[in-house]
């Protein structure tokens, strides 16, 4: 398994300054965003590079593994 496991991002909105730096470094395709100038929080990310977590000036992005239901 070379592919990373998909993750879901969680944003601590209390600390978020809505600066959009996380979106700027995100290699996902168009639309992987929330209405609050952040990366998407409700869509699994299969790239899981975590650049968004790194760039955040206030470190308010975390992630958890997205469990894929066996179809």
């Amino acid at each position: 398994m070379s592919k990373k496991e998909p993750v879901l991002f969680r944003i601590g909105w209390n600390a978020c300054i809505n600066c959009g730096a996380c979106v700027a470094v995100c290699p996902q395709e168009a639309g992987f965003i929330s209405p609050f100038d952040t990366i998407a929080v409700d869509t699994p990310c299969d790239i899981a590079c975590m650049a968004c977590e790194e760039i955040c000036p206030v470190t308010t992005i975390t992630h958890y593994l997205h469990e894929i239901d066996a179809a």
Partner: peptide, 10 residues
Amino acid sequence: HIKLRELASC
């Protein structure tokens, strides 16, 4: 998108 090492976090 911008590379992580080329975006200053401010």
